[in-house]
Design a protein around this nucleic acid. Structure first.
Lengths: 325, 325
DNA sequence: GCGCTGATTTGTCAGCTGACAAAAACGAGG
DNA sequence: CCTCGTTTTTGTCAGCTGACAAATCAGCGC
């Protein structure tokens, strides 16, 4: 369903609500922040009118869907300190555990739970029996609303939901995203394994387009060894996440570069005619040469080239002979 | 717009309305025939409540969009005979000619016009001033409704509308088809030129899937000569349309087979010059193309190719342009 | 500090295409 | 002639992806 439908029936909000992300945002973020604020209010509906209880944190398990790559410790420490000083304002949402009597499972509020556990306090919670589908939608929308998950964290969440068998409509609802965006997320997480993404980190400064580009590079079998090398290189894990992304991206782009003596510019040599109906990537190591083309006329132009290789080779030999060596 | 929207507000009809096609139909034709009958009624709305006049056929020009590949003479003779004996039941729809005073242009009813002309009689007509957009939608829907255009005739009609600059919504309306079907029609008529389709004929026994397959075969530059040979072979034009289609399809399918001897699976070909200083592997999926070369001269020949891509592409475009479409 | 420009992110539209379902024609066998 | 299986047509759904627009950040010049 379209996100606009999700927001149907909600009170109109004033323009310019406060930005709620903890990292710089670009793109059409204004409407994003606004609609995510709407989602937050919608998620809060789960809590409305429900009795709040205090639970022992040891009685509460995490959700069956992980939604975060790692904790931002500085931000978590701030949250913990605020709770220590002021107590816990907003309850978390939990549901009765499916199979463990007397235990609960977090729908949302994982960090507040962790903070309560570390502070040695009970956690204030609303207990609500909801099914798996409602659970993941609420969790996802709460996460989208609090708007501090990066593109790749959201993509991993989507991937986990698909691996758990949810259909695209549920996933789109859980992420407040349309089908096209979900599809792009699946492309990225199909080509880049979850473990590789984990090692790269949440990359707050990297958006969808660059993740898609990296996924095409990582997805090439010929780059597999290079990916492993970069991930295992000394000190890689200690770099900031964005820098790790850049290192890998640069390395894979660069692995075509020895060939790029002829051509300046980003990545392997490329070629494109004025009508842009062919996009070619060219690799030349001297001993081996490869060229791949895509876009509208790629197939027919390739066929055209294939049929003329004999003639072109004769011409090539003639020109080499004219160089007279 | 979806066809269902088109039919909104119309009276529900009984099941099993009479089949109206003049050739055997397969597939989901029941709903097709029913909805086309609805379209016929809708098209008749253009005629409702309008004064019928008698026009000299020599005052009436054809539509600016051709909708038929050729006339089925037997069927036309039947129509003409019926008009001769009983007169003309249903008026045709014309609009005042845009630029020629005192002349008219047919929206629909071309065959009835022709019959009247050949019988030396006036033609009964409704004259209605409508714009180009309404004109093509009415014409298209009338044609769809009378349901005697084959897939490829409808596809050509769609192609003509696109070439005339109408957007996809208008085209979908004119053909009572959804966007996906229009897109497939565009693919076929993009790859197979109108003149080639004309020579193959309306092919009443051939559906979308086979036309799509043929279009992929015809779209291969390597098959270009073969297409010309088959179209020019003695007696080809005298064959029934379906047989002409089969002949061309068989010839192209057969001519592709020798190439794939080398490699099973997704069409991978090889190439090697006489001096064997280059070994090339070529893969072409129609949408993407890749070629890799190794051996002694691979790098230098590859560089030679890379430096000539612009010129080769111009040559490729020129040759495609010479096909005349 | 401000304005401009380029780069990037995000949301979403539109087109392409594979695939599936329903219906019907055709051929073979009884 | 009837039944059954196969093949084909037609309608349409769903997913993929290119591309565009809006918004914002960063860098640079004044």
């Amino acid at each position: 369903m379209a996100r606009k439908n999700l927001l149907e029936g909600l009170v109109d909000l004033p323009n310019d609500p406060p930005t709620v992300t903890n990292y710089p945002m670009r793109g059409a973020g204004k409407s994003l922040v606004r609609s995510l604020d709407d989602l937050a209010k919608q998620a809060d509906k789960f809590l409305e009118g429900e009795a709040i209880v205090e639970l022992d944190p040891d009685q509460v398990d995490a959700s069956f869907v992980q939604d975060r790559i790692s904790e931002d410790d500085a931000e978590f420490d701030d949250l913990k300190e605020a709770i220590r000083v002021r107590g816990q304002d907003t309850p978390i949402l939990v549901r009765p555990h499916r199979s463990a009597e007397g235990r609960y499972q977090v729908v949302f509020g994982h960090r507040r739970l962790r903070a309560a556990r570390e502070l040695g306090r009970k956690v204030r919670a609303v207990v609500k029996p909801i099914d798996d589908r409602t659970h993941v939608i609420a969790q996802g929308q709460e996460n989208s609303a609090r708007a501090n998950l990066t593109f790749i964290e959201r993509a991993l969440f989507a991937r986990r939901l698909e691996d758990l068998g949810y259909d695209r409509d549920v996933i789109a609802s859980a992420l407040a995203a349309n089908a096209a965006l979900i599809s792009k997320m699946m492309s990225v997480t199909e080509r880049i394994s979850a473990s590789t993404i984990q090692q790269l980190g949440s990359a707050p400064g990297v958006g969808r387009e660059r993740w898609l580009e990296l996924s095409l590079l990582v997805g090439k079998a010929s780059n597999e060894a290079k990916v492993s090398d970069v991930l295992r290189s000394p000190g890689f894990g200690e770099l900031p996440s964005d820098e790790r992304f850049s290192r890998l991206y640069g390395a894979l782009n660069k692995s075509a570069r020895p060939v790029r003596k002829v051509e300046a510019g980003a990545g392997k040599a490329t070629w494109q005619p004025r009508d842009k109906a062919v996009q070619a990537e060219i690799k030349n190591t001297g001993k081996a040469f490869s060229m791949s083309m895509k876009a509208k006329n790629a197939g027919r132009f390739g066929e055209f080239l294939s049929n003329r290789l004999d003639a072109l080779y004769e011409q090539f030999l003639a020109e080499e002979g004219n160089k007279g060596d």
